[in-house]
Structures are given as structure tokens and as C-alpha cells.
């Protein structure tokens, strides 16, 4: 039988853990608001640039950008957006599972894959699994800086430009609501064909100043960057939501454990008292 001192020690340690998890829950809850706000702020830009890109796609442009080109695929690149910190439930691992299964699917078709990773968790995961990592960015913090992603984006786009990679997939968690996050793997390059709107009806093209190629090159790069940035922001909102949920569960579990231990503590204490009493009574009877 455990003694009271041991049980009391255990209760105290679980209580302090509970304090930590509940504090982390509150921190995550307040951060969700901030990241959601950031998602909101970035939205006009992504919407506008998407609009412009779809206009360009619908124009009878004199220059067709390679990002629209469907070429025979030999190698695919997965751009994986993950969190830097753990303690957020199955958020990262669910995403990685999906990435791995997609990569295996491509492999069955004879398509090799490599990886460009954002976040510490992806880096350590793909290090242990083993995979061809071409670029890596980590420790973006709670407020990801678009500039921090430029290098990684450029590396991936250059690989595509040189023909070393034919397809690029963007993998990240989609924010459904605070309770649900959806891991998704979306094709980034070649860009999926846009749905046509009324602009296609007439044959028209932009005037380009200076050159069509130069402008479209820049614009497309910016577009891809904005998509990746958005994925990073969205993933960070997901991270906070998942963390809040995980920490909430941990706090509740700690509460249950404490209740059980307190019951055990009372039992042990009562048993000790009873034993003592029966010893005294026994002793008195013997006298």
C-alpha cells in the first residue's frame, strides 16, 4: 500500500503541471485572435492578386508563363508548412501523414519527390523519416514575416525553372474553426486552370510596360509568395487553435488524475487510522 506522503507528493506535482497547461491554454486562446486577425488583414492582397492573375490567365497574352505549362512530371516538390513548437496535438503529424501518402502515391507513378520545409517540426520529422530536403526555414515566430519566406520560395521556383522539379505541392493545415483543422495538400505549380468569366468573351490583351515576360515573371512569383505566406499564417492560426484544445484536454485530464489520487490519499489515510485504532484496541484488550 502506498503511503500518504508519496501520494501527496504526486498530487502536488500534477497540480503544478495543471497550472502550466491551463496557462498555456489561455495564452493560445489569446494568440488565436491575433493570428486570425492577421489572416483577415492579409486577405485583401491575396484576393486582389488572385483577381489580377485570373485576368491575365483569361487575356490572350502574348507570353504564356511556365507556371501554367503542364509538362511531363518526373519530380515533385512538397512545400510543407509546419509549426515550430509542439504540444499542439496531432496537428503536424496528421499533415505529415498526408504528405507521405501523397508522395508514396506519386512514387507509384514513377515520380520522385523532394521537400522544402517551413517550421522546426517538419525539419525534425523529415530528418528522421529521411527525404531529400532542398530548403528549410524555421523559427518564424508568432508573427511570420513575409520576407523570411522569400529565400525558400525562390529556391523552389528556381528548381522549377531549371526543370529539376515539374510539380510543386503546397501542404499546410487549413483553418476550418477553432475545433477543426484540415490538413491539405494542394497543387501549386502548374497553376490549376482558372474558371473563365465574362472577360474571356472578347479577345484582348494588356499593354505591358516594360516587357510582358519580365512583368509576368515578377507577378507570378509574387502570387506564389502570397499563397505560401497565406498558408503559413493559416497554419499558425491552426497551431494556436490545436494547442488550445490540446492544453484544455491536458488540464481536464490532470483534474481527473488529481481527483483519483485524492480518493486514494483518503483511503490510505483512513486505512492508517483504522489500523492504528485497532492496534490500540488490541493493545488495551491484551492488558
Amino acid at each position: 500500500m502506498a503511503n500518504t506522503k508519496e501520494v501527496r507528493k504526486q498530487i502536488a506535482s500534477i497540480k503544478s503541471t495543471q497550472k502550466i497547461t491551463s496557462a498555456m491554454e489561455m495564452v493560445a486562446a489569446s494568440k488565436i485572435k491575433k493570428t486570425q486577425n492577421e489572416m483577415q488583414l492579409g486577405r485583401p492582397y491575396s484576393e486582389k492578386i488572385k483577381e489580377v492573375i485570373s485576368h491575365i490567365a483569361n487575356s490572350s497574352s502574348e507570353y504564356s508563363h511556365p507556371f501554367y505549362e503542364h509538362r511531363e512530371t518526373k519530380k515533385a516538390c512538397f512545400l510543407v508548412v509546419s509549426s515550430d513548437k509542439g504540444l499542439c496535438g496531432g496537428l503536424n503529424i496528421n499533415l505529415f501523414k498526408q504528405v507521405i501518402s501523397k508522395s508514396a502515391e506519386l512514387k507509384a507513378q514513377g515520380i520522385e519527390s523532394n521537400f522544402a520545409l517551413i517550421g522546426l517540426k517538419a525539419a525534425s520529422f523529415f530528418k528522421s523519416v529521411g527525404g531529400d530536403v532542398v530548403a528549410n526555414v524555421q523559427k518564424l515566430g508568432d508573427k511570420p514575416d513575409p520576407d523570411a519566406l522569400i529565400g525558400l520560395t525562390k529556391t523552389v521556383l528556381d528548381l522549377h525553372r531549371n526543370g529539376e522539379v515539374d510539380q510543386v505541392y503546397l501542404c499546410g493545415n487549413g483553418f476550418v474553426n477553432t475545433m477543426t483543422q484540415q490538413p491539405k495538400v494542394e497543387q501549386l505549380i502548374p497553376l490549376p486552370a482558372e474558371e473563365t468569366d465574362e472577360l474571356t468573351a472578347t479577345h484582348w490583351d494588356y499593354i505591358y510596360e516594360p516587357e510582358a515576360q519580365e512583368l509576368l515573371e515578377g507577378l507570378m512569383t509574387r502570387y506564389i509568395e502570397s499563397l505560401i505566406y497565406h498558408a503559413v499564417i493559416e497554419n499558425s492560426a491552426c497551431e494556436q487553435a490545436a494547442k488550445m484544445l490540446a492544453m484544455k484536454n491536458a488540464t481536464e485530464n490532470a483534474g481527473d488524475l488529481i481527483k483519483e489520487l485524492e480518493l486514494l490519499y483518503n483511503n490510505v489515510r483512513q486505512a492508517a487510522i483504522t489500523q492504528e485504532l485497532s492496534e490500540i484496541v488490541g493493545g488495551a484488550a491484551a492488558v
Binding site: 486582389k48 483577381e51 485576368h55 532542398v134 530548403a135 520576407d147 529565400g151 525558400l152 525562390k154 528556381d158
Partner: peptide, 30 residues
Amino acid sequence: QPDLVTFLSDRAERAESMDEAEAIKAQELA
């Protein structure tokens, strides 16, 4: 477009050479 004008402005200062340096950085980290 005839009925609308959109300005897509970058938030931060950038230069081509800076892109290059950043790319090198990301690769090296890998």
C-alpha cells in the same frame, strides 16, 4: 482595366540581390 485599377504594393523593401542572398541562406540551412 477600363473600370478598375489595382495597386499591388509590397510591404517591405526588396531587391533582386536580396532574394538571392535569402535563397542562399535557406539552402545553407538545409
